[in-house]
Amino acid sequence: MRTFQGRVIAPGTVTAPALVSHGGLNTLASFQKALQFGDKKATCGDQNNPDLYGKEMLGKALCLPQTIGSTTGGMVLYCACAMHRQPACLLFSKPIDSLAAAGSVLASVWLPDAQMPVIDSLGQEFLDYVQEGMTITVHADGSVDVD
C-alpha cells in the first residue's frame, strides 16, 4: 500500500475501487449520455478516452490528471451529483482545473446531501502508480491510500 498527500477541494472520506484515466476527462462527453438516458451506472460515453470509454463511473474512485472540454463540465458534474450518479470521489494528479472546481464547489454549496470528496495535486507519481481496481481510501486530511 502507498499513501499520497493531496489538497482537499471538497471534504469527505470514502473507500472505493479505482478507475483511472491517464488523459483528461472530458466531462460532457463522458457523462451526457448516462445522465440523459437513465444509465444509473454512469457509463462513460467519451469515445476519445480509451481508458474510460464504456466503463461504469458510478461509485468509483476516479483518478485523473484534470478535466477538459466544454464549459458545461462543472454543471454536468453538478447534475451527476444531484442525480446520484457521481463517482465516489475525484482524485486529481494535477492542480484542479476551473471546470472540475466549479462542479465540486457547486455540489458542495448547493447540494447538502452530495457526497463526492475531491482531492487535487496528488502528483504524477500517484497517477503512474494507481491501477484500475485497486482499493482507494480517501481521508479527511487529503491523504489517499492506494492498495
Binding site: 472540454g69 464549459t71 458545461t72 463540465g73 462543472g74 476551473s98 457547486l106
Partner: peptide
C-alpha cells in the same frame, strides 16, 4: 463568460480577460 469557444476567442482575439468558467458559475 462560459462557452469554451467564446471564452478562448474573447481572451485571444479580443484581448478580454476571462477564465474558463463553468455553466452556472458564469
Amino acid at each position: 463568460w462560459a462557452e469554451s469557444s467564446a471564452v478562448v476567442y474573447a481572451n485571444s482575439v479580443l484581448g478580454a480577460r476571462c477564465n474558463r468558467n463553468s455553466g452556472i458559475v458564469d
